[in-house]
């Protein structure tokens, strides 16, 4: 809640941190321990630091102007309330297929299974993901330094 409704963007970023921790806890509840650790590493360690860097670089911290305004607040509220009600109603009333073997809690580590699946059945998405990460890193670096290369000569 605070992520969305807080006026100060720094408060939003820090409450986003707690949201990520909560989602990692939900992953543990859902028997996905490797995903929980990955969530902590990638989101808390990477994405949140990137967002905070963005906050610090794009706001003049000398003149305290880290407030973030809103726009279209009323129609957005109506539309989002309608959408949330619709999603909740659909999720609540649907009769989901539940597997029979989930009643007992099985506490197994999923790291081995994930590693096996990554190099056997999911090799192609794995390689595509590595290429996408490489392209993203190179592209981000290019975009971040092209401005200076243009202004220097």
């Amino acid at each position: 809640m605070v992520v969305v409704f807080s006026k100060s963007i720094v408060y939003s970023a820090f409450s986003l941190l707690f949201t990520f921790f909560g989602v990692a806890g939900i992953y543990v509840l859902l028997n996905a321990d490797f995903l929980a650790i990955t969530q902590l590493l990638v989101y808390v360690g990477g994405i949140l630091v990137l967002l905070l860097f963005g906050v610090m670089l794009t706001t003049n911290t000398v003149t305290i102007d880290v407030k973030s305004g809103t726009m279209n607040i009323f129609p957005a509220t109506v539309v989002i309330a309608l959408l949330a009600g619709m999603l909740g109603g659909i999720f609540w009333t649907s009769d989901w297929f539940m597997s029979k073997q989930t009643s007992e809690i099985v506490h197994t580590t999923t790291t081995t299974e994930i590693g096996n699946a990554l190099i056997t059945t999911h090799v192609l998405p794995f390689e595509i993901a590595s290429v996408v990460l490489l392209v993203a890193v190179v592209g981000a670096a290019m975009m971040a330094r092209r401005e200076r290369a243009n202004t220097n000569p």
């Binding site: 989101y43 967002l51 963005g54 993203a136 592209g139 981000a140 975009m143």
Partner: peptide, 19 residues
């Protein structure tokens, strides 16, 4: 894979925002 793409998207989007 969603987490991987989110990381890539955050890096590229931050570069765009800085530009």
């Amino acid at each position: 894979f969603v987490i991987i793409l989110a990381a890539a998207e955050a890096a590229v989007a931050l570069a765009i925002v800085l530009n």
